[in-house]
Amino acid sequence: MQPEIIIPVLMGCALLWWIGRGMGWTTRLLVGAIALGLIALVLLVERALR
């Protein structure tokens, strides 16, 4: 994989872990699902504009 893909993914995981320290597992899963949905939406919009 390319570093411009790996580094943001790792930073995003670290940020979710840091923010989610005080959250329960249900809230963590919800936040993770929302984040993945936003990423997919951005990718779809980006590909549609090309």
Rank of each mutant, 00 (worst) to 15 (best):
M1A: 14
M1C: 12
M1G: 07
M1Y: 06
M1W: 10
M1T: 10
Q2R: 15
Q2N: 14
P3I: 04
P3D: 06
P3R: 00
P3Q: 08
P3T: 02
E4Q: 07
I5C: 11
I5Q: 13
I5E: 10
I6Y: 04
I6N: 03
I6W: 04
I7K: 05
I7H: 04
I7V: 14
I7T: 12
P8Y: 01
P8W: 00
P8C: 01
P8I: 00
P8A: 03
V9C: 05
V9M: 07
V9E: 09
L10C: 04
L10W: 03
L10S: 02
L10V: 03
L10T: 01
M11R: 09
M11A: 12
M11W: 01
G12T: 04
G12P: 00
G12A: 15
G12E: 03
C13T: 10
C13V: 13
A14C: 08
A14K: 01
A14G: 04
A14T: 03
A14I: 01
L15G: 01
L15T: 02
L15E: 04
L15H: 01
L16R: 02
L16D: 01
L16I: 11
L16F: 04
L16C: 11
L16W: 01
W17S: 11
W17C: 11
W18F: 08
I19Q: 11
I19E: 11
I19N: 09
G20D: 00
G20W: 00
G20H: 00
R21W: 05
R21I: 04
G22A: 15
G22M: 11
M23P: 00
M23V: 12
G24P: 03
G24I: 05
G24Q: 05
G24E: 09
W25P: 04
W25D: 15
W25N: 13
W25G: 11
T26Q: 13
T26M: 12
T27W: 09
R28P: 00
R28E: 06
R28T: 03
L29T: 07
L29K: 08
L29M: 15
L29Y: 06
L29I: 14
L29S: 14
L30N: 12
L30T: 15
L30Y: 12
L30C: 14
V31T: 11
V31G: 02
G32K: 01
A33I: 12
A33G: 11
A33K: 09
A33C: 12
A33T: 14
A33V: 13
A33L: 14
A35W: 00
A35N: 04
L36C: 12
L36R: 07
L38N: 10
L38H: 10
L38C: 13
L38P: 05
L38A: 13
I39S: 02
I39C: 01
A40V: 02
A40S: 05
A40N: 02
L41K: 03
L41S: 09
V42D: 12
V42T: 11
V42Y: 11
L43T: 06
L43F: 07
L43M: 10
L44I: 09
L44T: 09
L44H: 10
L44Q: 10
L44A: 12
V45Y: 07
V45A: 08
V45P: 01
V45S: 08
E46D: 09
E46R: 13
E46F: 11
E46V: 10
R47A: 04
A48N: 06
A48Y: 08
A48I: 09
A48W: 09
L49E: 08
L49H: 06
R50E: 03
R50G: 06
R50D: 05
